[in-house]
Each structure stands twice: as structure tokens, then as C-alpha cells.
Design a protein around this nucleic acid. Structure first.
Lengths: 138, 138
DNA sequence: ATAAACCCTATAAAAATTGTAGAGTTTATA
DNA sequence: TATAAACTCTACAATTTTTATAGGGTTTAT
């Protein structure tokens, strides 16, 4: 399951995507729309900004806005940013690889090989679905 | 990512699958093979037994053995048993459904709809790959 | 009878997630 | 130029989940 952080990130992105006509949107408006803690959401939006997905304007009248086109915000990008690896095992993660402590030899590990296939099929979905698909369905 | 519990379950199933010629296999042999805590693994094997995947023989000379055919042990079954939902959100889980607290109406939630599609594509992989696929690659 | 081995429940330790606090910094505007 | 609004940043507290351990109970071969 995705963490709440990631789920809230998707909600926030959806909200921002629906309000692209506005210059900026307040954190508190997004928080209120979903009944999420303002401060918790703040951290999430900051991460999305640092990742280049959102932009912000400081000071009075400021807020956040979507920088990227919704179609260019893949689900995989948001999940990796806030939740970490998409792969089911560390030893098959492309972005967060770590060997499994219990594993003598990856080359001889059947679990490793199968999980590489699973990862590739999951990525095929998550890289190709984007914020645009979410917005299309709202 | 899968929990260690689930990963160890796959290792144990693989070990048992490779030793189907033996009547039983000791917990401690599996634990030793992967350097896993005996007691931690014990709980895992017990769950696999309760789920009807493994059988056991008590007393001296006892141990665990695979009941099912490897091809009938889908990855999805093991993951659900030890890790819980496969779906990325509670509101799209088939086996562990819960509404999202922040969601007014699932019918109008684009995230929900997209995550249903993601779930179905993930299930398509995880239901169709099995212990047999792991064993084939060892 | 004894030792080997699984069965079961409870609990402790560690890690991750979730949430909060508060002091900066920037900016519009009166 | 004072003020209030709003994002920035770091640290930390609370909660939950995961991981691991403990220890007695039951079954069975010999």
C-alpha cells in the first residue's frame, strides 16, 4: 500500500491540476478540501516542489501551482519520491538497490529473477499512467 | 516493498519446493540456509500452514512440507497472507477494502479509478506468477 | 521416559510513518 | 515602511507497524 504521504500527494496534485487556471493555490485550501493536516501537507508539497513538479510563490498572495503538464507527472515519479522503491524487493530496485542480506548469489536466486519480471510489469503501468489519467476521470 | 516476513516466506517456499523429495524439512534447516532467525521463521511457516500451503508433522522426525503444487501457489496468495493488500490504496483493495477517510465520494474520485486499473494490472501479474516460476529459475 | 520438533500466545525492541511546533524568510499592500 | 499573509526549513514527538524474542505447551519416534 502507498503511504498516506503519497496518497495525499496525489490528492494535492489532483487539486492543483483542477485549478490550473488560478495562479496559485493555498496549502490550507488543499488541506481543507481533503481534511488533511496543514503542516503535514506542507512537507509533502515542499518535496513535490524540490522535485520540480510544483512551483510556489512566497509571501502574501502566494501559494503553489503545477509546473509540469499533468501527462508528464507519472505515477511512478510521485511514488518513488514519497514512498521510495516501487520494486517488491531491494535486490531488484532500479532506484534504491540494495542486496538482500540473506542472499548468497543473486545470479542463482529464482526469487530475484521473478521479481525483476514483476517490477518491469509494474513499471510498465506506473510509468505510463500519469496525473492526466487521474484528472480525466474526475 | 514486501516485508521481510513475505520475503522469507518466499525463500522458505523455494527451499521446500526444492526439497519435495524429502518427507519433511526442519525449520532450522531453512533458517540456517538463509541466516534467518529460527523463531521468526517459525511464525511464518505456521501462517503458511494455516493457509493450507504447507503441511507439517509434529514430534521427533517431524518438519514442514509443501502441500500444494508450486504452480498453484500464486505470488498474490503469499503476499496477501503475510503483507496484506496488494492494492495501492485501501479504497481499491479487493480483500482488505476500507474507504479513504478523506474521500467524499469514490464514484467521483479520479485517483480511485486509476488505482483500480493499476490494481488490476498488478493482479494480472501476481496471480499468474507462482512458486513454480521461482523454482524454474533456480 | 526422553528428546526432538512443531504449536501458540504474549511481549519487547526497533524502525517507519504520521503528525506537530516554531522560528525563519519573502512579498503584497495599505 | 509596517504589517500580515504565506511559503521554508529543521527538529522532534506520537503512533503504528515491523521485526524479533521468550517460553511454555503438545505431539511423536525411539
Amino acid at each position: 500500500m502507498l503511504s498516506k504521504k503519497t496518497k495525499y500527494a496525489f490528492h494535492a496534485l489532483t487539486y492543483l491540476g483542477k485549478n490550473r487556471d488560478q495562479k496559485t493555490v493555498l496549502i490550507q485550501d488543499i488541506a481543507a478540501a481533503y481534511g488533511i493536516s496543514h503542516k503535514f501537507l506542507e512537507n509533502i508539497l515542499l518535496e513535490l516542489k524540490k522535485a520540480g513538479i510544483l512551483g510556489s510563490k512566497k509571501g502574501k498572495g502566494g501559494g503553489y501551482y503545477l509546473i509540469k503538464e499533468p501527462k508528464d507527472v507519472a505515477l511512478s515519479k510521485v511514488i518513488r519520491l514519497l514512498d521510495g522503491p516501487i520494486a517488491l524487493l531491494p535486490c531488484v530496485s532500479l532506484n534504491y538497490y540494495e542486496p538482500c542480506a540473506e542472499c548468497q548469489s543473486e545470479a542463482e536466486c529464482g526469487l530475484n529473477k521473478v521479481m525483476i519480471q514483476v517490477r518491469d510489469e509494474m513499471l510498465n503501468v506506473l510509468e505510463n499512467k500519469s496525473l492526466a489519467d487521474i484528472l480525466d476521470k474526475e
